[in-house]
């Protein structure tokens, strides 16, 4: 028994809890920074304006709809790169169904469009899961392939253009409020709660963590690993698909590249939130914080009057910091990743 590992020195354990909470601290730090900037430069406030809060929340929920399902996949030690265009495919399919049913389709047309759109998305998830679980294709490569296929299919069915639709119900779905909260934010929040429950309170969640740490542990425990992997990729595709539905609702148009600009932000949010590329780590709360960090940076830099391109630089730097933090955590817990 190595006492250094079982009872770490108090200094190291303090550092460890600091590193575990770094994303929270970082979020508070950047909020404080922008607030200070607003106070000194404009005499106004950054955080305490409803418009700012709402804009940040909407931006964060867009990222989250791609990042939530992805969190489960990454905790299991895999990755899903196809989500960006699964979002696009769902957006285009939904718009086409509504257009096909005509202007007078009403809520029934919307419901049907939602179902068909999610069906198209889960098809991508099924293919991803099948490739990874049954054909043992590394998920990075397999989902890079379906990324291309989903992108092509979305462009083909859309005829290479944006599919615009006119439907009052659709506009209400994308731009309405529920108790004063924008619909996309409400949907993202409900999905975040569902994914958090799934990952931390169910047997499915434990098996996901165990799968990420050591596949043999769950296999020998009698868990059907292939089925589990397929479910994970379907969940990832469906949450990304919901992102596409909301896009179509917000802009009254489906675009094949609806998810393209968010894909890397979604991946970044998961890693900033404490997940590790080797699997077995990560939480939904972490991903939510990660998404908010990115959204605050996006909005804040524009708020400060900087060219919007600086957001790419800033988010890139935060990703690198996140990886460095993850590595130093590994060093503190005995060198294991």
């Amino acid at each position: 028994m190595n006492p250094a590992l079982t009872t770490p020195k108090t200094g190291a354990s303090f550092l460890k809890s600091l590193l575990n909470a770094w994303s929270w601290l970082f979020l508070i730090l950047i909020l404080g920074f922008f607030e200070l900037y607003a106070q000194s430069e404009t005499g106004g406030t950054f955080i305490f304006r409803a418009y700012n809060v709402q804009a940040i929340a909407v931006a964060a929920s867009q990222i989250l709809l791609l990042a939530l399902g992805l969190t489960l996949v990454i905790v299991a030690g895999h990755i899903d790169l196809s989500i960006g265009f699964t979002t696009g495919l769902a957006a285009v399919v939904m718009a086409l169904v509504i257009r096909g049913l005509g202007v007078d389709g009403g809520w029934l047309a919307l419901l049907l469009a939602v179902l068909v759109g999610l069906g198209a998305a889960s098809l991508v998830g099924l293919v991803n899961g099948w490739l990874v679980a049954y054909l043992n294709v590394p998920s990075f490569i397999g989902t890079l392939g379906t990324y291309g296929i989903a992108r092509g299919m979305a462009l083909i069915v859309a005829g290479g253009a944006t599919v615009s639709v006119r439907s009052d119900e659709l506009r209400a779905f994308g731009n309405g409020d529920i108790l004063g909260f924008p619909v996309p934010v409400v949907i993202a929040a409900l999905l975040a709660i569902a994914c958090h429950y799934l990952l931390t309170h169910t047997r499915f969640g434990v098996h996901t963590y165990a799968l990420g740490a050591n596949r043999a542990s769950v296999e020998r425990a009698g868990v059907d690993v292939k089925r589990h992997l397929i479910l994970l990729f379907v969940i990832s595709a469906v949450t990304a698909g919901i992102g596409g539905l909301i896009y179509t609702g917000r802009f009254s148009a489906g675009a094949a590249n609806a998810g393209e600009p968010i894909l890397l932000y979604a991946v970044a949010a998961v890693f900033i939130g404490g997940a590790s590329l080797t699997g077995g780590q990560g939480t939904v709360t972490g991903t939510v914080i990660g998404a908010f960090i990115i959204a605050v940076i996006q909005f804040g830099l524009v708020f400060c009057g900087l060219p919007p391109y600086w957001q790419f630089v800033a988010v890139g730097l935060v990703i690198i910091v996140a990886v460095l933090v993850d590595q130093s955590k590994g060093r503190l817990t005995g060198g294991r990743p």
Partner: peptide, 22 residues
């Protein structure tokens, strides 16, 4: 019990004991 023990290193002893039968 194989040499690699088939433990999930990121879970506590309780969950490892009950893995698959939580």
């Amino acid at each position: 019990i194989y040499q690699d023990l088939a433990l999930a290193d990121n879970l506590d002893p309780g969950l490892n004991l009950y893995l698959g039968r939580e």
